[in-house]
Nucleic acid binder design. Structure first.
Lengths: 367, 367
DNA sequence: TTGTAGGCGTTATCAG
DNA sequence: CTGATAACGCCTACAA
């Protein structure tokens, strides 16, 4: 006799067996009514439905997952929940997931490899059907282990060197190249870069784009102008201050992510410098709030929502079609959004064409 | 004979039974080694550990949850993942959860009651041990059902009228009162308010604080100056434009959330108005990025991190100590952070003391 | 110091 | 058209 067979109002959630008893049918029938998985007479259906209502039955997905060996749920591990880039990605992921009948469990690592590891373990132990990961960049063996076991895993934003798995990434080199090339076209020759954490792939790629643009324009790279930040606001601030305190500071700064760009702006403001009059700025990552900055930021925009969509689609394909052998890689294209935060330098060097400027220089006077 | 008893390398995750077989012990022993739940000889422990390594065994939390009727996991439903207020709360929640041995599953409703309902159902079906909820404000019966069943639930940021459950909320009335009172002290008498969605409790409370401050200062409320936004950037923009197009526009605007405040600033900028020279601004919610705005925003700051901490502590208490009868309510206190975005109005009305101003008026000239 | 066995709630394979 | 029954992987009396 079940622990709940006495008719009293229990607080424990009802089970299939309870419903079956109340409806006067077998458990199997209840299950089939719930899942529409075999024919059940209308009359029986009614009885079952009534019992479900009465008992406020709700399926126990835990038991379901155990039995089906499928949780219809996947993980999304982001490296900074406060970064608008990632929240935009979350939206894309959620929309696709919902359309395809999956639930998303969102984890935040704050760029901490230890938390990344814990999240991966958690998700695997909870038997999430797969994971979407923006890696912190530390290569712990656990990832290899998951991949060996053919656990569905898609990296996004960043890839891990030496790890071969599905991935959705941006053409970071091209994005940086465009940004720096644009600065050069406006007459800048001393261009600083505030980059991200060195171990992260995007950082090195964005640095690479910077270098190529300089090279293509015949500008010699100056090590002093290359700074490594921490991908957060304070890092952008500190490294920008470093650049400004150089004996011969740059006339333009390229900042390789959104939060650091805000820090860079704060640094310029704290030094009383005007943008772009004193120093021009180009940032990586566009975001809605940038629109209220004056002057408005020129940015390398990533297709964030599509990022999430593509990553989710790729993961679901892995989960459902199983392991097609070769890892798939999607390369997304950035867009340079030109606004007022660049502009020509005040005193053009003698060795360059001074036919730049235009309406852009009109706007923007800091403070 | 188990489906995996042949020694070949299977891709299926190893189970306790597998480990037991390889170690030459019983499943019970393996379980006890894993959980440290009874004495096991060192020798046996070694054997088990070795088998675990060899098979790369990881516990199946799904089975564990089913058996234990506990998932050590709770839900966190936020109404807007892109809002820095909520991401800050997330941090507080995560930290407490981790300290207390819980995992957090984060859901985003985007202020959509249908998504809220789905998230609640999902969490309950996945047998999350409880839920932390910032309600969209629609009172669907599902919440009542959960509470009747004594499902641990803590509301934060907002409460639902007529629903009695644990909650962590801000003293919104006091916050608004301070903000508006401050504007009055600076000489403003025509003060507009851009509020949030009417159905949300915080919106009405913040409106209430505005009203009380006007009343206390002998200012008659003008319906034209009271506008209802949508809690997002575009709403703040649109309602601010409305205010500016009034025949007799306000000299100051109080905006009741962070995103709308940014929209309001954008609106002022698009009209070429200076802050605070032409229009003063006070916003609700402080956030890191506000620091780069010029003039810097005067805001009503919420203790966001503590919000998350308190909410998580309350929930875990409910989960672990069970149902103490009375719902607990925590009331947090806002702080007015005075910066440059207020200031005195340009042409003081004749009926007021003009002894206000001070150093604050020096800073900040938009554009 | 360790093993046996039953059950958590669901689904799927047989029968009927 | 519907019912028994045996798993899924783990935990935990109870027994030895």
């Amino acid at each position: 006799m079940s622990r709940r067979s006495q008719g009293g109002t229990s607080n424990l959630p009802a089970t299939v067996a309870d419903v079956a008893r109340v409806a006067g049918v077998s458990g199997a029938t209840v299950s089939h009514v719930l899942n529409g998985t075999r024919y059940v007479s209308d009359e029986t259906k009614q009885k079952v439905q009534r019992a479900i209502e009465e008992l406020r039955y709700e399926v126990n997905s835990v038991a379901q997952s155990l039995k089906r060996n499928r949780s219809q749920m996947f993980g999304l591990i982001v490296s900074d929940i406060a970064n608008p880039f990632f929240t935009a990605v979350v939206r894309g992921v959620e929309d696709v997931a919902q359309r395809r009948g999956y639930n998303v469990i969102l984890c935040n690592t704050d760029e901490d490899p230890a938390r990344e590891l814990r999240s991966l373990q958690l998700l695997h132990q909870k038997r999430a059907d797969g994971v979407l990961l923006s890696p912190t960049g530390i290569h712990h063996g656990y990832l290899d282990r998951l991949l060996e076991a053919a656990y569905p895993l898609v990296c996004f934003d960043r890839v891990l060197p030496g790890v071969s798995c599905d991935a959705v990434v941006l053409d970071n080199v091209a994005g940086s190249y465009q940004a720096v090339d644009h600065l050069v076209a406006l007459g800048h020759r001393r261009i600083g870069i505030v980059g991200g954490v060195g171990r992260v792939g995007t950082s090195t790629e964005r640095l690479e784009g910077y270098r190529r643009a300089l090279l293509a324009n015949g500008i010699i790279e100056e090590p002093d102008l290359v700074r490594e930040g921490n991908s957060r606001l304070d890092g952008g601030f500190a490294r920008t201050i470093d650049l400004l305190e150089l004996p011969n500071p740059p006339s333009a700064i390229f900042v390789t992510n959104n939060l650091m760009t805000l820090g860079a702006i704060a640094a310029l403001q704290s030094r009383g410098l005007r943008i772009p009059g004193d120093v021009a700025i180009v940032g990586f990552d566009d975001f809605e709030w940038a629109m209220i900055l004056r002057p408005r930021l020129t940015t390398v925009a990533q297709p964030t929502y599509e990022f999430g969509q593509m990553a989710a689609e790729l993961l679901i394909a892995r989960i459902e079609q199983g392991v097609g052998d070769a890892p798939r890689r999607v390369l997304l294209t950035p867009t340079l959004r030109i606004r007022e935060s660049c502009g020509a330098i005040r005193v053009p060097h003698q060795d360059e064409f001074a036919q730049v400027f235009g309406s852009l220089t009109a706007a923007g006077h800091g403070r």
